[in-house]
Design a protein around this nucleic acid. Sequence first.
DNA 1: GGTAACGTTCGACGGATGTCAAAGTATTTG
DNA 2: CAAATACTTTGACATCCGTCGAACGTTACC
Lengths: 111, 111
Amino acid sequence: MPRQLPQPSRDSLDLITILAALADPVRLTLMRAMYTRPGADDCAAVADGIEVGAPTISHHYRVLREAGLTTTTVEGRRRVVTIRREDLEARFPGLLAAVLAPEPADQPARA
Amino acid sequence: MPRQLPQPSRDSLDLITILAALADPVRLTLMRAMYTRPGADDCAAVADGIEVGAPTISHHYRVLREAGLTTTTVEGRRRVVTIRREDLEARFPGLLAAVLAPEPADQPARA
DNA sequence: GGTAACGTTCGACGGATGTCAAAGTATTTG
DNA sequence: CAAATACTTTGACATCCGTCGAACGTTACC
């Protein structure tokens, strides 16, 4: 049976905590990967290509979960992490889209 | 003549830096005050009611400006700080609205 | 010129944060 | 059971961050 790790309730989500959680290159990369990639991905798959050690990735996933950005489910010996889209949209409408949307290329499109 | 303090160009705005700048209670309060209050406010007026010393307020205004969130203009012996709405909307559409919009009351409205 | 007003800069201090290596905990597989 | 897999936890370390008191510019006003 998939067990779910503790996470803050929707009502107790705090914007400062959420912004602080997003204000890190590794965590923003993880969030973007989960956001653009549909379906639930496991930790290792998403973290693939990030140049920090496993303990650091684990630490960042914990920060995201404790900030209320993600839900972590234990499935066997792997963790499945998903973004709490509904809760976040309910409390801070438009935030995820504004922050995680792929940025337009730095060079303006030439006709 | 009003002199303008140095600030990053629109193209060099960095999301991580912006999120980090917003992820502080004092700075978020300053931004909200400037956002909801139309027209340009001077530092002291906006900072009124925040419980930290003057050097700290000054420090936070600098962080906001260096992150590209605000423009600071020197007018005589006071500074006028305004949010760079156009630049921010161009680079990160919807971000200001999502972050600075007054949060709905924590208690759900009862009919 | 002298003084008050407004804000900045400097230096210091304590607490938080990101990272890693080493050891630990479940869980699956042979 | 033993070994391998997939993460986590712990402890340490360096760095960054928010805050303050004190001193410093500028500008305005008498």
